[in-house]
């Protein structure tokens, strides 16, 4: 008895669900980017490091008609001091930021945060500006730039503008970035003498997005506490910070942990419910405050 021959041809890559079809533009200048964005608007996406965008494409959560690859634009990379500001090019890779002695000295909070971002192979590709544009509420860098009062430089064919981190993050994955704009650079105020920075986060596995995280910056003029993973964007904890304003002591840490309920109302997610997240935020606040006290 004969059975039909089995189909043995292996599936080729096109047969399997992959990124949707798109046109690709290798941009060599910002002018080219502006023109393409002006023409294609929301049908186009900027491809920077691609460490969040490409997974979204592969899972077809995003189906742009055009990818504008800005990786060849060298003018968007680099780290330099400009007076009282540390300027970080939007296309600068996380690994470069993490290895920069300038960042370690002038923006220690960012230096501490970088090793928490995913893994070495991701950090070699992911970019500073890309992380801010993505605005994942559990990501490290949005919280850092908010804690540091950084300024984002946005550009389009219409011109350039500067937007403070406070005004940049609007809602879940929503920013002040218009469809025809690109982030070109980020200015981070240089940390004054005597600044103490602490960056802590809790994740189930090393490199995962945080369950809860805290970027803390203590300066002579005050203490900034920015939590992430606790809302639809990074959240500044003003009441907890006020409780520590007169100086950090064990009693005031307890008061600040209690006050945190006025700052945070974390929604639950797949990893933890809201009450657990608030508890974990209090744990991190205690750790960070004790580290600041010792620093």
């Amino acid at each position: 008895m004969l059975t039909p021959a089995r189909e043995t041809r292996r599936a080729r890559w096109e047969d399997v669900l992959k990124a949707p079809s798109f046109a690709y533009l290798r941009a060599s200048s910002l002018a080219q980017v502006f023109d393409a964005l002006a023409e294609h608007g929301e049908d186009a996406r900027i491809l920077a490091g691609g460490q969040s965008l490409v997974p979204a494409l592969n899972m077809r959560l995003s189906e742009p008609r055009l990818l504008i690859d800005i990786n060849p634009i060298a003018a968007l990379t680099g780290i330099e001091r400009r007076g009282g500001m540390l300027r970080i090019g939007a296309l600068t890779r996380h690994s470069e930021v993490g290895a920069s002695p300038l960042v370690a000295r002038l923006a220690p909070l960012i230096h501490q945060a970088i090793p928490h971002i995913a893994h070495p192979a991701i950090r070699n590709r992911g970019t500073f500006g890309g992380s801010l544009a993505q605005a994942d509420p559990a990501a490290e860098l949005p919280a850092c730039v908010l804690a540091l009062d950084a300024v984002l430089h946005l550009a389009s064919r219409r011109g350039e503008r500067a937007v403070s981190a406070r005004d940049f993050f609007r809602a879940l994955y929503e920013t002040a970035l218009a469809p025809d704009e690109v982030i070109t650079a980020i200015d981070v105020p240089v940390a004054p003498q005597g600044t103490r920075s602490v960056f802590v986060e809790l994740a189930r596995r090393r490199g995962d997005y945080a369950l809860v995280g805290l970027a803390a910056e203590a300066r002579e003029v005050g203490l900034r506490l920015v939590f992430f993973g606790v809302g639809n964007k990074p959240v500044e904890a003003g009441a907890a910070s006020a409780a520590l304003a007169a100086g950090i002591t064990a009693e005031r840490i307890a008061a600040a942990q209690a006050a945190l309920a006025r700052d945070l109302d974390p929604p639950g997610d797949l990893q933890a419910d809201g009450a657990t997240k608030l508890h974990l935020a209090r744990v991190l606040l205690g750790r960070a405050a004790r580290a600041l006290m010792a620093a």
Binding site: P55, A121, N124
Partner: peptide, 16 residues
């Protein structure tokens, strides 16, 4: 390795 640095080959397009 891409230009000497480790990366994820699933998160890059050959076109790049």
């Amino acid at each position: 390795r891409l230009d000497g640095a480790i990366v994820r080959a699933c998160l890059l397009f050959a076109a790049q």
